[in-house]
Simulated assay, not measured.
Amino acid sequence: MNNVSVERRVSFRSVGLPAEHGSWSLVSEPILLGLLAAPSWAGAALAAGAFALFLLNRPFKIYWNDRRRGRAYERTAVARRAVLIYGLIAAGALALALALGGLRPFAPLGLALPLLAVFVAYDQRPGRYWQAELAAPVAFAAVVAAIVLAGGWAWPSALALWGFMAARAAPAVLFIRARLRLDKGKAVAPGDSIPTALAAHVLALGAVAALVWPGWLPWTALLAAGLLLARAAWGLSPWRWRSSVKALGVLETVFGVLAVALVALGYWLE
């Protein structure tokens, strides 16, 4: 009886919402940038559909794993309900985007499928893998290209925005992993070292500069990349701020929104 009562207390929030706080920021940023840079009804529908698919991942994983093992808990039923809700929202929103914008905006999402496959392959395994943590945000960053294409943008600028969001997301993942290990005094793991995180930010700055030079990104994108590099250098230094994991996540969200705002501002000033 005790087990049954515990299972019945499973909430929709615990099953239907992602547990990783950082994923909310890395998913919301490309959507926000796309809508700020090129607002359109088709883009808004694409954004809604993409966000619903993001929310669908956790309950689908719970439901699929339970059913695969031949188990049925209260959480299984809650997860199934969440999958149906998010699935219907995603299908309806993406169908509306297709009706309003045609197939063209969906092309970047197709290009992101190999990265999504990498994420799915590693996400099904127990534990946390850097491959999944890097592949997922870079794949989802394709949404910004899809949104601006729906707004009538040309391909070079759309892909450049995807490049900027990838240059934001991948180094951010490495920064957070290195910072958490540093704060907890854990041994350095491959890919989680301070030099790796800083090198990734330097490479990101160079990549953004290469996209700004031909005019595919506004010059404020360089300011944004420089801000993120400075944040990483300070955050991984002996003089870094001392904060909880939750506070670190909030700060990272703030830096991400500032970076997005700087890029959007560059387009508005043109």
Results as ranks from 00 to 15, higher is better:
residue 74 E to K: 14
residue 176 I to T: 12
residue 127 G to H: 03
residue 121 A to T: 07
residue 107 A to I: 06
residue 207 A to H: 05
residue 247 A to N: 07
residue 68 R to W: 14
residue 226 G to Q: 03
residue 162 W to I: 10
residue 207 A to G: 09
residue 189 A to W: 12
residue 21 H to R: 13
residue 150 A to P: 06
residue 91 A to M: 09
residue 229 L to V: 13
residue 121 A to M: 03
residue 35 L to E: 07
residue 155 W to D: 09
residue 250 V to K: 09
residue 165 M to D: 08
residue 98 L to T: 13
residue 4 V to A: 12
residue 39 P to M: 02
residue 3 N to L: 15
residue 228 L to C: 06
residue 257 V to G: 01
residue 241 W to A: 05
residue 225 A to I: 11
residue 138 V to H: 02
residue 196 T to Q: 11
residue 67 R to Y: 00
residue 247 A to Q: 10
residue 268 W to K: 13
residue 231 R to I: 05
residue 79 A to P: 11
residue 204 A to G: 07
residue 185 G to D: 05
residue 73 Y to D: 13
residue 131 Q to N: 03
residue 64 W to K: 13
residue 171 P to T: 05
residue 145 A to W: 04
residue 91 A to H: 00
residue 95 A to R: 02
residue 212 V to E: 02
residue 120 V to E: 14
residue 175 F to L: 12
residue 138 V to Y: 04
residue 227 L to D: 07
residue 180 L to R: 15
residue 105 P to T: 06
residue 25 S to G: 14
residue 37 A to F: 08
residue 117 A to H: 01
residue 66 D to N: 04
residue 123 D to W: 10
residue 124 Q to T: 12
residue 227 L to V: 04
residue 59 P to F: 03
residue 95 A to L: 09
residue 59 P to T: 04
residue 219 W to I: 02
residue 161 L to G: 05
residue 203 L to K: 00
residue 207 A to I: 08
